[in-house]
Design a protein around this nucleic acid. Structure first.
Lengths: 238, 238
DNA sequence: CAGTGGTCTAGACCACTTT
DNA sequence: AAGTGGTCTAGACCACTGA
C-alpha cells in the first residue's frame, strides 16, 4: 500500500501534466484539497512539499500554491538516482560494457583516502569501456573495497555492477560526491575512446557512499568529445 | 522566532559535530527526543528528516536513527544556493569583475527559447571576465530579459549582479538547470583566460529560474584549464 | 478583513527490525 | 514481544497576503 501522501502527489502531478492546472495558475488551497482527498491537511501539505522539491509548484504563505511556469519541463527530468550512471539512464539493450582490466590490488594513498580504508585493505581495480548504441560513451576506472563486495565475478562486469550490488547483495546507496572537470586526452583516451590528441575530455570523478556513510566506490569516468557529452543537473532551492 | 523543528535540527547537528553522537552511533529514538525537547514526535521527525537530507543521519524503520560515517564531512558543505557562483563561494574581497561587453540586443532564437521569451523582447548581453585572487577564473556570457531587470547599470557589473537583484530589486530565485561540458578553447578563451590553443575548457551553461518558474538568466561560463577548476556536487538520495 | 500557508500537538495505527 | 521509525488524524494558533 502506497502512503496516502504519495498518491496525492501523483494525482496532482498528473493533473498538472494533463493541463488541469495550467502553468502559473493557483491550485486549490490545502483545506479544500484535504476535503477532496478525504484526508488531513498535514498529509496534503506533505504531498505539496514534495511536489515543490520536484520543481512543479511553489507556495507563498498568505497567497496560495502555484504551478511553476516551467513545471512541464520537470516531467521528464530523471530522478537523481542515476548512480549506475548508465543502466538507469539508458535502456539496458543500448548499453554494452567491455572489461579491460579486472584486478585486485593494494590501493594508492589517494584511493585509500577517498575510500577511507584502514591499513592496506585490498581493492578491486576495474577498467571498463562503456558503449551506448555501440558508440564509446566512457572509460570508467573504478575502485571498490573487497570487504564490501566479497564475490565480484568477471561476468558481472559485462553487465551493470550496480544492479548486481543492489539486487544480489543488499547494499543501499546513500549518495555520491562528484567532481567534474575538463582534462586533456591521455593515451588511454586516444586508444579506447577514439579521441584526438587535442580533444578535451569531460571527466567525472566520484565517491559513492552507502546509506550509512561508508564510501563504497571511487571512480573516474572519462567521456569523449563529440558534442554529445554533458553532465546536467537541476538545483531546486528548497 | 525560529520554528521549533529548526532549533531541534541545529541542536542535534551541533551535538553530532561536537562528538556527542559519534559516527555510526544511534541517536536517541524519536519518542525520547520528543520528551527531551518538550515537543511532539511529528516535530522531531521533521527535524530528523531535514538532517537526513543534509547528509548527517539516516533512519531505518524498525531499527533506529544513526549518524552517517561521513557526517562530519557535511559540516562544511556549502548549501546549493551558490547561484551567484562566485560571490557566495569566495569572500567579496577576492573576487573582481571586468566588464567586456554590456549591451542591449535582440535575442538569437536559441536564447529566446532558453529564456522563454515571446516576440522579440530585448535582452541584456553581458560579457564579464571574472577574477579570483587576481587570477582569471571564468569568462561569463550572460543574457537577461530587460523586462525583469529594468534598470541595470554598468556600475553593478563590477560587483555581484546577484546581490543587486536579490537585495535592491526583490527577485526570489527558485532554481537552476545546468549543463557541464568540456570544450575546445575559443579565440576569446585564449585572449581573456590566457588559455593555450590546446587547453580544454570547462563550460557551465545554465538557466536560472525565479521562484515562479520564469527563466531569468541564461549564461555560459568558461573556465580555464589550470588544474584548479572543477564543478563539485553532492547528491543525497533522499 | 478573510483566506492562505507554516507550524505544532497529542494522540493513533502500522511496518519493520532485533532479540 | 518489544522497540523502532513511517504515516496519519483532527484539530489549533500564528504569520502573511491581498482586497
Amino acid at each position: 500500500m502506497e502512503p496516502k501522501y504519495k498518491q496525492i502527489l501523483e494525482t496532482i502531478k498528473k493533473q498538472i501534466i494533463d493541463g488541469k492546472y495550467p502553468a502559473g495558475s493557483m491550485i486549490p488551497d490545502q483545506n479544500t484539497l484535504a476535503r477532496d482527498f478525504k484526508t488531513s491537511r498535514m498529509t496534503v501539505k506533505k504531498a505539496l512539499d514534495m511536489l515543490a522539491i520536484e520543481g512543479f509548484i511553489y507556495s507563498k504563505r498568505g497567497a496560495g500554491t502555484f504551478v511553476k511556469k516551467n513545471a512541464l519541463a520537470q516531467k521528464d527530468a530523471l530522478p537523481v538516482d542515476s548512480y549506475g550512471g548508465l543502466s538507469s539512464q539508458f535502456s539496458k539493450a543500448r548499453v554494452k560494457s567491455e572489461p579491460i582490466v579486472f584486478d585486485v590490488t593494494f590501493p594508492t594513498s589517494e584511493i585509500k583516502e577517498r575510500l577511507e580504508l584502514k591499513q592496506n585493505e585490498p581493492v578491486y581495480e576495474i577498467l571498463r569501456l562503456r558503449f551506448v548504441d555501440d558508440e564509446p560513451y566512457a572509460l570508467e576506472h573504478t575502485f571498490m573495497p573487497i570487504s564490501l563486495v566479497p564475490n565480484l565475478s568477471q561476468e558481472v562486469l559485462f553487465d551493470s555492477i550496480y544492479a548486481y550490488l543492489t539486487k544480489e547483495i543488499h547494499l543501499e546507496i546513500g549518495g555520491a560526491f562528484r567532481k567534474i572537470s575538463a582534462e586533456k586526452a591521455s593515451k588511454n583516451d586516444i586508444k579506447y575512446l577514439a579521441s584526438a590528441e587535442t580533444d578535451p575530455i569531460l571527466q567525472v570523478e566520484q565517491v559513492v557512499y552507502l546509506q550509512d556513510g561508508r564510501p563504497f566506490e571511487y571512480s573516474i569516468s572519462r567521456h569523449p568529445y563529440n558534442g554529445k557529452h554533458a553532465y546536467t543537473i537541476f538545483d531546486c532551492k528548497n
